[in-house]
Write a protein that binds this DNA or RNA. Structure first.
Length: 513
RNA sequence: GGGCCGGUAGCUCAAUGGUGGAGCACUGCCCUUUUAAGGCAGGGGUUCUGGGUUCGAGUCCCAGCCGGCUCACCA
């Protein structure tokens, strides 16, 4: 790992670079004009026979990274890799000349080269470039990982993603797919009449979600700033201003734990639609996810962590129904009517904990004085969440855990809100937006009270947001969708780090420090 | 933060407490249709770090560093 251990290999390669320069090649030339990408050649000529290629004589100039080298005396082969495609080149002394062949002999795995020649098929039938000119483009001073086991050390894969991408094709595929997914989302939102906006990442108040923020400081203004935990409050200000359908795809930052489902910075799609409510958000979510899955995977069904998941049908359950349905087998659980009275909910935490202790599980840590809503949510997350494998909208969230949602007209203890679960993961969170400034102030005051009791994730009072609501926010539906988790689902990635190019790791200890 | 697991050559991995190895990669030589090319000959190690036990530690013990999984928190 240390540079001293690699110095032999690096020194050898430096000397080869000197030899290449001595042959008259630039060490780091400016450019190389290709006639084709490797992908274009593979796509266009993989069905051509040897005879067709000979008859047509297709001249090409291509470039790529050397991934294999097989020298044979006065000739030799190599594979170039570029853009996710590989193409073999055949280099003979009598075709490329002394200088070109000297260059070939000085090549190392990982070097970048350009080749000019014509397409042909080898005796074994592989489409190849018969090289007539070889061009040196850049040196790999560091050696590539082993050629068929690739790179499997996850720490190096995350820390040196560039190497991971070079040698593990499925990693490249995952990130290409993620890009197509985001493209499909933008296409969908645009077609729905939404406009894409960007709102502040640095905010004087960190609102819009219950999470601990990162703190930073602006020197010139001598101002404490938070990296945003959500864009929500700004996007709704835009609805007030008359941008009636807005979305943003961007990073949120939450100063919480790291896990296979959590990275401190993660990407969220958030969107708001005036004159809509959470029912419309449910309908839109279904259409969005179906279209995205079709575009990315060509199917509504996919495999995730060994489970077959289908976006054909989306189930709906209220939070209470989910708790009742998924209460652990063998434990005496509540019926729906047992949860009707909010005051009846917290005792079920004790019931659950009794069962948990007797069966060797961790009991829930819910404050005895926690609100009925917090108790219900805790129960839901403990007993139900992991069972929600097929897409399921959970509706009817408790008021106390939903400071920005509109109350249900028929039951003010609950709000018009849903979360979408797939494969046991929370994928989306949406609600009919609370647009009564007086009620919003009371919600903020409740949050403030939680804050003073030590809950660092509770909202601070945002006076300007209340002012914006006071100008009149139309009835509005809003939603956030976790882009990384959606990418996990569509690429069958078990860890969020496998869909984030550079996941956060502790910095590598350096030898000097 | 807790629990469990891991860290040996550039990479992938071996090695009862008893002289640290293999394959690939690398170096030299041979080879003008190979593809895990082949043949011959070589070089390469602070076994993550620091202590301890022992005649002797990659191996056992303790502490630390880094990572993975998992639980907690959260999305």
């Amino acid at each position: 790992m240390s540079t001293s251990e690699q110095s032999d290999l690096v020194t050898q390669r430096r000397k080869k670079l000197e030899s290449i320069v001595a042959l008259g090649f630039a060490a780091y030339p400016e450019r190389y004009d290709c006639t084709h990408s490797l992908r274009q050649i593979v796509d266009a000529y993989s069905s051509h026979t040897a005879e067709q290629l000979t008859a047509e004589r297709v001249n090409v100039r291509v470039a790529g990274r050397v991934m294999t080298i097989r020298p044979h005396g006065k000739a030799g082969f190599a594979h170039l890799q570029s853009g996710g495609a590989r193409l073999q080149i055949y280099v003979r002394l009598d075709a490329v000349g002394e200088r070109g062949f000297e260059l070939y002999k000085l090549l190392d795995l990982g070097d970048l080269v350009g080749v000019e020649g014509y397409l042909f098929r080898t005796r074994t039938g592989e489409l190849s470039v018969h090289a007539e000119r070889l061009m040196f483009l850049a040196k790999a001073l560091l050696p590539l990982p082993e050629k068929w086991h690739g790179l499997s050390d996850v720490e190096i894969r995350y820390r040196q993603r560039y190497v991971d991408l070079m040698v593990n094709p499925e990693v490249r595929d995952t990130f290409v797919k993620r890009s197509r997914m985001v493209r499909a989302i933008r296409d969908f939102m645009d077609a729905e009449g939404y406009i894409e906006v960007e709102t502040p990442m640095m905010q004087p108040l960190a609102g819009g979600a219950m999470a601990r923020p990162f703190v930073t400081h602006h020197n010139a203004l001598d101002l404490k700033l938070y990296l945003r935990v959500a864009p929500e409050l700004y996007l709704k200000r835009l609805i007030v201003g008359g941008l009636e359908r807005v979305y943003e795809i961007n990073r949120n930052f939450r100063n919480e734990g790291i896990s296979t489902q959590h990275n401190p910075e993660f990407t969220m799609l958030e969107f708001y639609q005036a004159y809509a409510d959470y029912h419309e958000m449910i309908a839109l979510t279904e259409r969005l996810l179906k279209q995205v899955a079709e575009t990315v995977n060509g199917s509504l069904g996919f495999e995730f962590a060994g489970q077959r998941i289908s976006l054909e049908r989306f189930e709906r359950l209220t939070m209470k129904e989910a708790v009742v349905r998924h209460w652990p087998e063998g434990a005496a659980g509540p019926k729906l009517e047992d949860l009707a009275d909010p005051k009846a909910i917290p005792p079920w935490v004790d019931t659950y904990n009794g069962w948990a202790r007797s069966s060797g599980r961790e009991p829930l840590e819910v404050d005895r004085k926690a609100s009925p809503g917090a108790a219900l949510q805790a129960l839901f997350e403990e007993v139900a969440e992991r069972h929600l494998v097929q897409p399921t909208f959970i509706t009817d969230f408790p008021l106390e855990v939903s400071p920005l949602s509109k109350q249900r007209p028929d039951d003010p203890n609950y709000v018009e809100r849903f979360e979408l679960y797939i494969a046991g993961m929370e994928i989306a969170n949406a609600f009919s937006e609370l647009n009564d400034p007086e009620e919003q102030r009371r919600r903020f005051q409740y949050q403030q009270m939680l804050r003073e009791k030590g809950d660092l994730t509770a909202h601070a009072i945002d006076e300007d947001y209340i002012r914006a609501l006071s100008y009149g926010l139309p009835p509005t539906g809003g939603e956030g969708i976790g882009i990384d988790r959606l990418a996990m689902l569509l690429t069958d990635s078990k860890s969020i780090r496998d869909v984030i190019l550079f996941p956060l790791l502790r910095p590598q200890p350096t030898e000097s420090s």
